[in-house]
């Protein structure tokens, strides 16, 4: 027992130095040198001011924006300081109520739209910060956003396509649309004729 005390403590101290200090600091150095944008939160700038992260979703409620997925973070949706899923089981009444009221909201915002609602748009993400919706969810909302903004659907569709990320190498992951980027692009479109940008 006694003869093990010195190696235990000494090695713990040495490993702390190597894996707890040198290793993370070295990676910080490399990251800041080679990938400064990615290493600092992929923050989108406009006129030198940060206006959101390309990786972190935001909540949108007005009809002129594409809506993100449901978010279960507390005390408000898309609270990036406290990531969380709903953790409701599939039969949980709270889940069914949340889904039902979401369907009603979507229908209420766009009573002309008779399409089925894509499941990702009616459910909460794992992180509560999902920056994406499926392409089908974007298509579902397309006519509503175009109408609210008095834009031709073709124009909105082309923006959706610009903000679509396809499967990596053609097969990894799922094709998806970045909601914040899409809405920022829409705002840019609406405001630029007035010269606001």
């Amino acid at each position: 027992m006694k003869q093990h005390l010195r190696p235990a403590v000494a090695l713990l101290v040495l490993f702390t130095l190597i894996t707890g200090a040198l290793y993370p600091l070295l990676i910080v150095g490399i990251a800041q040198g080679v990938f400064p944008f990615e290493a600092n939160g992929s923050i989108i700038q406009r006129d030198g001011n940060p206006i959101g992260s390309a990786l972190i979703g935001q909540q949108f409620t007005s009809a002129k924006y594409f809506w993100s997925r449901l978010s279960a973070t507390a005390p408000f949706p898309y609270n990036a300081g406290a990531s969380s899923g709903s953790n409701y089981g599939p039969m949980n009444r709270s889940l069914l109520n949340a889904t039902r009221s979401r369907v009603e909201q979507l229908r209420g915002a766009d009573s002309l739209n008779m399409q089925s609602i894509p499941v990702d748009l009616a459910t909460a993400s794992a992180s509560g910060l999902d920056p994406h919706i499926s392409i089908q969810s974007a298509q579902y909302q397309l006519s509503r956003v175009a109408r609210e903004r008095n834009l031709p659907e073709v124009k909105v569709r082309s923006l959706v396509e610009q903000c679509t990320e396809s499967r990596t190498f053609g097969f990894l992951g799922e094709p998806r649309v970045n909601v914040l980027k899409l809405n920022l692009a829409l705002d840019g479109l609406t405001s630029s004729p007035k010269g606001a940008d």
Partner: peptide
């Protein structure tokens, strides 16, 4: 409830509660 859970090339479908779109 009027929800489409069928997988296709434009949506992951299935039980998406607690899952991220990029992973499906």
């Amino acid at each position: 409830m009027g929800i489409d859970q069928t997988a296709s090339d434009i949506q992951p479908g299935g039980n998406m509660e607690g899952k991220e779109v990029r992973f499906g």
